[in-house]
Design a protein around this nucleic acid. Sequence first.
DNA 1: ATGCCAATGCTATATTGTATCATCACTGTT
DNA 2: AACAGTGATGATACAATATAGCATTGGCAT
Lengths: 156, 156
Amino acid sequence: MNSIQSIIDHADQSCKEHGEKLTSKRKQVLSGLLKSGRAMSAYELVDYCKKEFSENLPAMSVYRILDFLQQEQLVHKLNLANKFVACSHIRCGHVHAVSQFLICSSCQKVKEISITQEVLEELQKNVTDAGYHLQSPQFEMNCLCDACFSASSSCN
Amino acid sequence: MNSIQSIIDHADQSCKEHGEKLTSKRKQVLSGLLKSGRAMSAYELVDYCKKEFSENLPAMSVYRILDFLQQEQLVHKLNLANKFVACSHIRCGHVHAVSQFLICSSCQKVKEISITQEVLEELQKNVTDAGYHLQSPQFEMNCLCDACFSASSSCN
DNA sequence: ATGCCAATGCTATATTGTATCATCACTGTT
DNA sequence: AACAGTGATGATACAATATAGCATTGGCAT
C-alpha cells in the first residue's frame, strides 16, 4: 500500500469518526493535493481529476469539496496564493495545532510546521491587548525553498 | 489641517525623498483608505473616487496606484481578504517593522501592530530550520474586533 | 418501493486581477 | 512657444478565482 493511499485511509477513518463520508470524488481531490505536495488552485484540481480519473468535476463541486475537506481539517487554504494544500498531519493522530505555512514563491512547494506554544501565546497576547478576538490563527509566509533559492541566487 | 491631510502630507514628503511623486489620483486612493480605516478592495476604491471626487478611475489604474503605494510602503495588501489597507506608520517616522495585521472578519476594520523582536526571531528560526528563506514577513490574522465580538456573542 | 437528505451537477454571474496598447501631462531643452 | 522624452493614466479585453441558486442524483432507513 503506497503512502498516499495510507494517508487517504487515515482521512477516511477520521471522517467516519465525525459522522462524515469521504466520498470517491472527495478522495480524488485530496489525492491530487497529496500527490503534488504543492499548493494547487481549485481549477488545477479540476484539470487533475479530468486527466487522472476522466472525471469532469465542475469547479463548483471542487470548491464544495475543498470546503468540506477544510472543515475536516484535511486541507488548508493558503490565502497568500489563493490555493489549497493537503494538511501534513493527517496521519500523525491529526491533533491540529496552529500552523505556520512556508510557501515557496517560486515553485509553490509548501511546508507546514507547527508553531510553538510560546510564540502562539505571545501572538495571542498581542491580539488581546489590541482589543481583538482571534478567530482562526494560521500563518503564511512567502519564502523560497532551498532549491529555488540556490537557483535564483546563482543566476543573479 | 485635519489628521488625514497631515498624513497625506507626510506621505507626499516621503515619496519625494525617494524621487517619486504622490499625484492627485494617488492621493485620492490613499485618502479613501485612510478615511475608511478599513480594508478596501480595488473596486471599492474605484467607487469611492467616483462618489467623492467624481473621478472615473478605471480599475486598472487603481491597481497600478495600489502597487505604487505598496512600493512606497504607504499601503499593505491583505491577502486574507484580498483587500488593501493604509499603513499605520506613515506619520511616525515610518520605519517599517514586521507587521501583524488583525482583521475583523465582520466589519473589516484593521489594526496593524508591530511584532516583537523575540517572536520574529522565533518565527524566522522556524523558517531557517525548515530549509526555507523568508521573503516578506507579514502576518495576518482573522479576528473579531471588540464591537463585532460583543454583537455576535449577544445574538447567539 | 418510498421518501429523505446529503452530495453533486449545471448555469450564470460576481469579484479580483492582468495584459496590451494608446493617450495624456509634466519636465526640461532649445 | 514648440518639441521630445518619460512616467502616469485611459481603454479594452480577458484571465483567474469564487459564489448564488436551483435541479438532479444516489445511498440509506423505513
